[in-house]
Design a protein around this nucleic acid. Structure first.
Lengths: 351, 351
DNA sequence: CCTCTCGACTAAAGCGCTTTAGAAACAGTG
DNA sequence: CACTGTTTCTAAAGCGCTTTAGTCGAGAGG
C-alpha cells in the first residue's frame, strides 16, 4: 500500500521550541537558555552557533513559558477610566502613551491597555483586580490620581508595583512623578500682565481632576502676587457653556483655560455674544494640541512635554519592578506658544 | 531561645496556586481546573466548594500558566504606526480602540497596544515579528491597509490569525471589514447640492491612506452623477496649507474635507483671505469630533460609528482565533451632523 | 602521575496550570 | 451477588522555558 512519505520535520508547522534550537546547535536546551540570557558558562563559538540556529529557526523564547518560570510577564498595565469622548480631545493621553510605549518597547516590555467607562468605579477596580489575580502584568501605571483614591488600597494590598503619573492629593503608598505643568499658568499670567491685562479669568475642566486643581491654585497665586482680582474662575463641571458664560460675566480682558478644547468653546461663546477674540478678549489654551495651531484665531497655548513624562513614568515603573531605584526625572518647564489669540487688552488699545 | 512562631501559611505572601485552592476545597487540582473551565464531571456541591475556596483565596488561574498549556494568550495585538501628532487629532483611533476594548474585555481578552513611528516601516514589521515569535498574542487587528502591504506576507507566513479593519486595495489573505464611511461623502454632497451649491471642492489628507482614496472616489462619483465640476480636489500630502490654498484657488462655494482637522485648517485659510465661513464658503468636516461641535462656526460633519466598527472587528478576530465563522457586520450608514458651517452658496444669497 | 580547580556543558526538577487515562464509588440489572 | 455502566474524582504527564546540582575534561600545581 502506498502512503505519502511523512517528513517528520517539515510536515509539522508548530512553533519551534528551545529543544529544536538546542538540537540544531548540538547542545542542551539549558545552554540555549544560558546563551539567550547572557549567562556565563557559554563559550564564544558555542554561543554563536546557538544564536545562528535560533535565527534560522526564527525562534525566540515563548513569553508565556518565560513568564511562568521567571514570574515576570514583561507587561505593564494601564487602565484608563475615561470615555472615548474624553480621550479623543485629550492630547495628554496620546502623547503620554507614546512616551510610555517607546520606553517599554526598548526594555522589551509590552503595554496592556484597558479602557473602562469613566463613570464606573466598580468596573475600574474590577479591571485592576482581574489583571492582578490572573497575574497578567508586572505593575501598573496610574493616571488621574484622585482624593481618597480607591485604587490605592487595592493595589497596595496586592503588593503590586505601581507608579503614579501625577501628584496624589494626599500621601500615597506609591512613588509618583509630576510634570509641574501648572508652572505654565504662571507663564500665561506673566504673558498677559506683560500685555497690560489686569482682569484675567480662569476656565477649568472637571474640578475633581488633580491637574485642574493645581492649575487653579497656581492661577490664584499668580493673581494674588500681582495684586489682581481673584474671583473670575469657573469650572466646566460638567456644563461647559454655563462655565464659559460665568467667566465672561465677570468681564475679564483675558481668560486662561485648562485645555485647548475649553479655549475653543470659550471663543465660541465670545462669538455668540457678538464679540471677537483677541480684540475684545485674549484667550490662552492648554496642551498646545494641533487644534491650537489650526483654529482661528490660532490659539496661544501652554505646552508640556507629556511624551517625556510618559517615558519617565514608565522608566520609573520598570525600576520599581526590578526593585531598583527609579531614575530621577527633572521635568522640563512648560513653554508658552504665543499665537494670535492673545493681544493687548481693549482699554489699552483704545487709548 | 525565643523565636517568632512561624505561621506556615500566613508567613508566605506568595500568590495562591491551584494547589492551595484544591487543598482548601479538599479536592485534587485537576478538579479545580474542571470546575473553573465548566467541564462536566464535577458535582454541584463540590463545584460550589471549589468556587468558594477560590474566592476566599482570591485565586484566578495564572494567565501565563494557562497560556502555556492552552497555547492561547488571550491577548490580541494592535500595532499602530502613526506618530503621536497624528493620533491625537484622529478621533477614529480612540473610538475604534474603545470599541475593541469593550469587546475584548467581555471575552476576557486583553489588548496589547504598540505604537511605532509612522515613518519607520522596518520598526513596524519588527514589532509584529517580535510579538509573533515570542508568542505574545493570539492574533492581530490591522488598520490602515496599504497597497502592497508588507505586513500581509509576514503575517500570512506566520499563519497567525488576522482581521483587517478597513478595505484592502487588492486581494488580501485575511478577512476584512469596513464601515462604508465613504457613503458619508454622498450625504455631504447631497446636502450641499440641496442648498444650491455647484462648485463643491474636496480636501483630503494623505493620499496613501485608503480611507482618503475611498472618499475621494466617492466625491468624484457624486459630482459626476450630478453633472458638476470635478477637478476641485487637493490633498494635504503632506502640506496642509498648500492644499487648502489649492482648493480655494478653484473658487468653490463649498468644500468637503476628510477630517475635522482639515476643515478647521481650511476655515483658517479662508479667514486669512479675508473671507468668512459659511457666508463665502460652506465647509463640511469628517468624523464629527468634539472639535466640530465646539469650533466657531460649528462644523457640519460626517459621523461614522467607529466604536461599533472596533467592536465588530475584534469580534471577528476572536472568531477567527477560535476557528469559527466571524459574526456578520452590517455597518450603520454614516450620518451628517448639520451645523453652522454650511449654508446656501453666496450667489444664491445675493439674488 | 595524581589531585585540584575551573570552565563548559548537561540532566532533571520545577514554574502553575490542563488534560488524559484510569481508579473509586455508586447505582442499576438480571 | 456479580456484573456493567455512570458519574465523580485523582495521578501523572506535559506545555516551553529557567535553574540547580552536578558531570566531564583540560590545564595547573605539587
Amino acid at each position: 500500500m502506498n502512503r505519502p512519505i511523512a517528513n517528520s520535520d517539515e510536515g509539522s508547522r508548530r512553533r519551534p521550541t528551545i529543544a529544536d534550537v538546542a538540537r540544531r546547535a548540538g547542545v542542551s536546551p539549558a545552554l540555549v537558555s544560558f546563551a539567550f540570557n547572557d549567562r556565563p558558562g557559554v563559550s564564544a563559538p558555542t554561543r554563536e552557533r546557538i544564536l545562528v540556529a535560533a535565527k534560522e529557526l526564527r525562534w525566540r523564547p515563548s513569553a508565556s513559558a518565560r513568564a511562568l518560570t521567571q514570574a515576570r510577564t514583561q507587561t505593564v498595565g494601564l487602565v484608563l477610566s475615561r470615555g472615548a469622548d474624553e480621550l479623543e480631545v485629550d492630547s495628554f493621553f496620546v502623547r503620554f502613551l507614546s512616551g510610555v510605549e517607546r520606553t517599554l518597547a526598548r526594555a522589551d516590555y509590552a503595554m496592556l491597555l484597558q479602557l473602562v467607562p469613566a463613570t464606573d468605579a466598580a468596573a475600574t477596580l474590577g479591571a485592576y483586580e482581574r489583571l492582578i489575580s490572573a497575574d497578567r502584568v508586572d505593575g501598573f501605571l496610574l493616571t488621574d490620581p484622585e482624593l481618597e483614591d480607591p485604587r490605592f488600597p487595592l493595589l497596595a494590598q496586592a503588593a503590586v508595583p505601581v507608579v503614579i503619573a501625577g501628584r496624589p492629593a494626599a500621601a500615597a503608598p506609591f512613588p509618583w512623578l509630576e510634570t509641574e505643568h501648572d508652572r505654565g499658568i504662571s507663564l500665561a499670567v506673566a504673558h498677559l500682565t506683560g500685555l497690560g491685562h489686569e482682569r484675567i479669568g480662569f476656565l477649568g475642566g472637571l474640578r475633581a481632576y488633580e491637574h485642574v486643581q493645581r492649575r487653579y491654585i497656581r492661577w490664584r497665586e499668580a493673581m494674588g502676587a500681582g495684586g489682581l482680582a481673584d474671583d473670575r474662575a469657573a469650572f466646566a463641571d460638567p456644563d461647559l457653556s454655563a462655565a464659559a458664560a460665568r467667566v465672561l460675566d465677570h468681564e475679564p480682558t483675558a481668560v486662561i483655560c485648562t485645555s485647548d478644547t475649553l479655549a475653543i468653546a470659550l471663543i465660541r461663546a465670545v462669538h455668540d455674544r457678538g464679540l471677537s477674540v483677541p480684540d475684545h478678549l485674549s484667550v490662552i489654551g492648554f496642551d498646545d494640541s494641533l487644534l491650537a495651531a489650526l483654529s482661528s484665531p490660532a490659539l496661544t497655548s501652554i505646552r508640556v512635554d507629556y511624551t517625556a513624562f510618559g517615558a519617565a513614568a514608565s522608566a520609573a515603573l520598570l525600576a520599581v519592578v526590578d526593585g531598583a531605584q527609579a531614575p530621577p526625572y527633572r521635568p522640563e518647564s512648560p513653554t508658552l506658544e504665543v499665537r494670535a489669540s492673545t493681544t493687548r487688552p481693549p482699554q489699552v488699545q483704545d487709548l
